[in-house]
Design a binder for these strands. Sequence first.
RNA 1: GGCGCUAUGGUGUAAUUGGUUAACACGCCGCCCUCUCAAGGCGGAGAGUACGGGUUCGAUCCCCGUUAGCGCUACCA
Length: 503
Amino acid sequence: MTIRVRFAPSPTGHLHMGNARTALFNWLFARKQKGTFVLRIEDTDVSRSEARFEDLIYQDLKWMGMDWDEGPDRGGAFGPYRQSERIELYRQKALELVDSDKAFHCFCAEAELEAQASVARAAGLTWRYPGTCRELTRDAAETRLRKKEPSVIRLKVRPGAIHFRDLVHGATEFNSDVISDLVLIRTTGLPTYNYAVVVDDALMEITHVIRGDDHLSNTPKQILVYEAFNWAPPQFAHLSTILGSDHSRLSKRHGATSVQNFQEMGILPEALMNYIALLGWAPPEGESEIRTNEEISRNFDLEKVSKSPAVFDLGKLFWINRHYLKECPAGQLVSLVIPLLQQTGWIGQVDAMVEGWIDRLIEAFLPRVDHLSQIADMTDSICSFDPDEVVRRVEVLEALAVPGATEVVRELGFQLSQPDKKVVHEWKKIVAAVKANTGQKGKNLFHPIRLALTGTASGPELDKLVPLFEEGSQLSLLKKVKDCRERVCGFAEAWDSAQTSPR
RNA sequence: GGCGCUAUGGUGUAAUUGGUUAACACGCCGCCCUCUCAAGGCGGAGAGUACGGGUUCGAUCCCCGUUAGCGCUACCA
């Protein structure tokens, strides 16, 4: 028998880390087992679901590199794959259950039951549906139905224990005493989650249900539905929750938590996939944690997945991302960085010259970056150069207080101002001249140069920065990149005037 | 409140399934490299396995309680 798994998100927005991992584990399992991966959209909650969110889910999944064999957009032999298109099916199936006396029409007022429940809760008791309509005769029910009394269809929960074996948690047992006669079909005619999943999973012939831990307590209810239909339940595998750094459930307030967030940040999809796979799973000792999906899926084993919740560690994601960034072909990086640079307002239309410049930019900044959007930030802070502001920075003030530092700046300005200087090619010569004429060397030589050029005490090698400034100044960008001469001379001037007229 | 799940350094995971100086990775600290910050290389600190009881010659591993976190307890999914 071939394995069939499914990922069944609700279209309520971008994919979240928890869902992304559920999708990934399903996908890994399907690929490893040469099975079928089906995508199903659970949109029975009309208040939260929106059709446009469905596309977001497809996009996120595709971006991460996952594909599916069946789904609303791809079709398949077990469709439709949107719950909203299966409403009639759920209703029919529920009616079958009523016919076989496994379920019943219930006319109890929701408000009244709720009131009972809250009384019970206040008394510290477990509330269960009292069974009022359970014993209604078929005729009585029919008449009330004909009178269009509002009603739901509820399952007759059988007494006794419910056992199942979870692939990650092992043998699990629940007592049905705690389970109320659950609603299958609501007053509105729409199915409830716990009912619809079962109908879908069974009819779509899903063999393994791999989903979040939060469904573990729902599983016995669903098994009851399988039993009522005389369907064999699938295998279950419940994945642990992903927690935020404070050990509470991961949510927006923990910062970036959706696939979209990471994409915008400039995290590579391979990195995100790799990291998420590491949440609750680890390769054998001594083997690298950096591995492709192929490698992960090759020895992926659901029973090896951790039962305990995992804290999402941005730092480790960044570490993995840095790794993939280094391996990423330059051309691809350039095209990823372009939109980020456009956002900061530095570039508009891109031609081959600009691309070349961006390539240099990446080369200079990449080693010190966790994710691509930092390249745009760094470009912004280093290319914007306002001498009057720079000259007031504490780090500049401190560094220029060192004896000989101002001479270095002045001499550098002088050297750069010589006519016909080919700054990029002669940079080494220029520095050598400054060195010879000021007698400064090492840190005392380079530190002032760096400051006069960039305004900050740290950053990429000057050899990389100089061509960046020179070439950038020739380009017609949205903002002007100042060349080296302009920077140093502007700096020297601002410095002098700040000294003579301290504010 | 009831029911369930989980519990190994700061974080993610190992520990041949009762016998190890409790391992690896991220992070952190230090050193080397270096004009600087990164990157890279090298080294180090950090847990006696949530807590308390058992069982056993011996418990990270088995059992029981406690605590904490999370989930379910809906006509949300």
